[in-house]
Design a protein around this nucleic acid. Structure first.
Lengths: 209, 209
DNA sequence: TTCGCTTTGTATCTTTTGATACCGTTTTAA
DNA sequence: TTAAAACGGTATCAAAAGATACAAAGCGAA
């Protein structure tokens, strides 16, 4: 599907009219169902996705383990795709729609071209790299120095902050995957939280009090 | 001091003659003693350093703790300075000469300008961001999933690989700082290694057998 | 409704790592 | 040369988190 000016306005990042024209002529608007794979591990990247609505989950699987890199939210793009597109590398990571998602797909050829021609595009690229680095540094620090109970609480609060309702739909096992630990550890901590009236627990649901 | 074409050849990254001219007219070649601070935390960045010889150590201090981000080796630059220069931010990190170092200093104004004009400069910038991200991801994984003994050994092997001699000059305390742990833990592990004939220990020196 | 799968609760045990303390040796600087 | 600082060895204790095992409860499909 061809993107519209409306969509570009919604993304709100690309100010130059010429760039907007180029995006409309060269890019596609694609819909994904929850669970659809947008970028597969070890595959060459042909387009870089910019999320319009919904969310992508980007992760790696190394030695049987899943490592969450980041989520791509509206008006953001996937840094690993960007990076792979610059060097014509295979993607070292996988991107999956975490919910129904609409994304603008930019053919890789334009990524560097637009960087030279349009300041707003270049800013977008640099900001993407810089922000993802900061993000990773933050999770690095919290893994290195914080106890898991604090990390669990921060994860829940962050998730709750991004939605209207305070009820977070996630199983203990999934939460363990997100934080790189095991289910038993999560159950233990959540039970502690419940006893201290910090959360309420249901099957597949955690509610922050 | 004004840089020469020789120096640029040595760096070996900037192919366009026009870019080389610009570097020679606008950049400086600066020498630093071991311990000199090149970028201070919370200070605005005026120049971005590209290391010609020697090495910079870039780290953050958060909550009394020191977090090693990366080393800047010859032909590399400091990603945090780059990033700060793009957004006119204060530097969130500190860069110190780990040994006597000569660096090419690029005034921040040219960083984005050259990005648009010179492909090799843009590649350099993007590659810097991308490589530092990969690097951080690797240390993240090793902190999250590996035991300290393995991390110590890998650190020693990596250090040894970068020099001729197998003797690494570092105290247990310094090693602990590098890996984000405490001196006692390091002493314990090194003693284990020595008993298994993996290393030989001296005062301030560790030799891989 | 019943069978099977998913989800959660919990107990026990072990390993890893950190914290603290104390001591002896070596190096440095006054 | 003497005092102080840096360095390293080691013992003890505690806390955090992982591994394993088993049971109970909830949910969906046949």
């Amino acid at each position: 599907m061809t993107p519209s000016f409306e969509i570009l306005k919604q993304i709100g990042l690309f100010s130059e009219p010429e760039l907007q024209e180029e995006i409309i002529t060269h890019c596609q608007l694609q819909s994904f169902e929850k669970g659809d794979v947008i970028v597969r591990e070890k595959q060459f990247v042909k387009v870089v996705p910019i999320v319009v609505s919904g969310m992508l989950r980007v992760y790696q699987t190394k030695q049987e383990r899943e490592i969450l890199l980041y989520y791509v939210e509206p008006s953001q793009t996937c840094m690993m795709s960007l990076s792979a597109s610059f060097f014509n590398n295979e993607s070292p990571s996988q991107a999956v729609a975490a919910e129904p998602t609409i994304a603008l797909t930019v053919p890789v050829a334009f990524v560097t071209e637009w960087q030279k021609k349009y300041t707003s595009w270049n800013n977008f690229v640099i900001r993407t790299f810089s922000n993802r680095y900061d993000e990773l540094l933050n999770t690095f620090e919290s893994v290195a120095f914080d106890h898991i109970d604090k990390r669990v609480l921060e994860y829940l609060q962050s998730r709750a902050g991004k939605q209207k309702a305070k009820a977070i739909e996630i199983s203990h096992q999934e939460l363990a995957n997100e934080l790189g630990t095991t289910r038993v550890v999560i159950s233990r901590i959540l039970k502690q939280f419940e006893m201290h009236n910090i959360v309420e627990l249901g099957r597949g649901v955690i509610t922050i009090s």
